[in-house]
């Protein structure tokens, strides 16, 4: 459970930014990383992300598990990419600098490893900012932030409800599955996969029914307290934008502009050091 990332309350320049700012920043930053494959841009984004992270006062132990997990995922992806197409980089950069031939169709080719490095950087450019968004944004502000950037407050509230009731659903699931285990349901054993899936339905069915009941109660409660009455709604947790909020968004927009600008300069997504 400790592996699940969630909000850590602190007082730092990052924490003081409004939820909306962090959300907008995160989205723009993601787009900037998504469109480019330029090494220089990606490395800059990663380093800036690390600096932001240090500013937030969060500790290595807060993210250790997540970082290890993400590293694992990236490594699997890199291995798979190389295994399936060892010459992908050659196709992209148009040259081939073989360093050492390994076996069969696998060689260490500079272009391929440069491509794999860029692939990795594409994730690394976003991870620090994503972690900050998760760890330094009060979930209470999520819904209000979504609403602020133009998402309908009703959809925003769906997110709030999801966050509010995750612990309840988790507790339900835990209790139901314990009681069903006592009746002989076992999901981990080396039963046949199809049997295991069938058995899981015996746990999920009570969970679905109690969730439908819960939906009924919550929607009544919301309606009785006037949800959906007006076209707009206010948020008690919403904070007004300050100077630093505008500065943060400006930084993100500039990054996006740089990312897009280099695409024009490069005449494509890639920075090619081989020509």
């Amino acid at each position: 459970m400790s592996a699940t990332l969630s909000y850590i309350k602190k007082d730092s320049p990052i924490h003081r930014l409004t939820g909306s700012t962090k959300f907008i920043f995160f989205l723009i930053w993601s787009v900037a990383a998504m469109i480019t494959y330029d090494t220089r841009v990606l490395v800059t984004m990663f380093l800036m992300g690390v600096i932001f992270f240090v500013m937030s006062g969060l500790k290595w132990k807060d993210i250790r598990f997540a970082v290890l997990f993400m590293t694992w995922l990236i490594v699997i992806n890199l291995v798979a990419l190389y295994a399936f197409a060892p010459e992908q980089g050659v196709g992209i950069y148009g040259t081939r600098h073989e360093i050492v031939h390994l076996f069969w169709r696998y060689s260490i080719v500079a272009e391929e490893f440069f491509y794999l490095f860029n692939f990795m950087m594409k994730y690394l450019a976003v991870i620090p900012v994503a972690l900050l968004f998760i760890l330094a944004t009060n979930p209470s502000e999520f819904a209000a932030s979504l609403n602020k950037i133009g998402v309908s407050y009703k959809v925003g509230y769906s997110v709030a409800i999801a966050l509010r009731y995750i612990p309840d659903v988790q507790r339900d699931f835990h209790e139901i599955s314990q009681a069903q285990q006592a009746r002989g349901i076992d999901l981990s054993k080396k039963d046949k996969l199809t049997d295991r899936l069938k058995n899981s339905a015996a746990i999920l069915f009570p969970l679905v029914l109690s969730s439908l009941q819960r939906i009924e109660v919550i929607s009544n409660a919301m309606e009785l307290r006037g949800f959906g009455k007006n076209k707009k709604r206010t948020w008690i947790v919403e904070r007004p934008f300050k100077k630093c909020d505008y500065v943060a968004i400006l930084v993100a927009v500039l990054m996006l502009a740089v990312s897009a600008g280099f695409m024009v300069i490069n005449g494509g997504r890639y920075f090619n050091p081989f020509v």
């Binding site: 699940t4 009703k154 959809v155 509230y157 769906s158 997110v159 709030a160 409800i161 999801a162 966050l163 509010r164 009731y165 995750i166 309840d168 659903v169 988790q170 699931f173 999901l187 899981s200 999920l204 969970l207 679905v208 969730s211 819960r214 939906i215 009924e216 919550i218 929607s219 919301m222 309606e223 949800f227 959906g228």
Partner: peptide
């Protein structure tokens, strides 16, 4: 609409719990 909003939220919570912990 209200019931749908709640159903989205609870559906997402279920999706999360099952996808994350099971």
């Amino acid at each position: 609409t209200i019931k749908s909003i709640v159903a989205i939220g609870i559906g997402a919570a279920l999706f999360f719990v099952l996808g994350r912990f099971v």
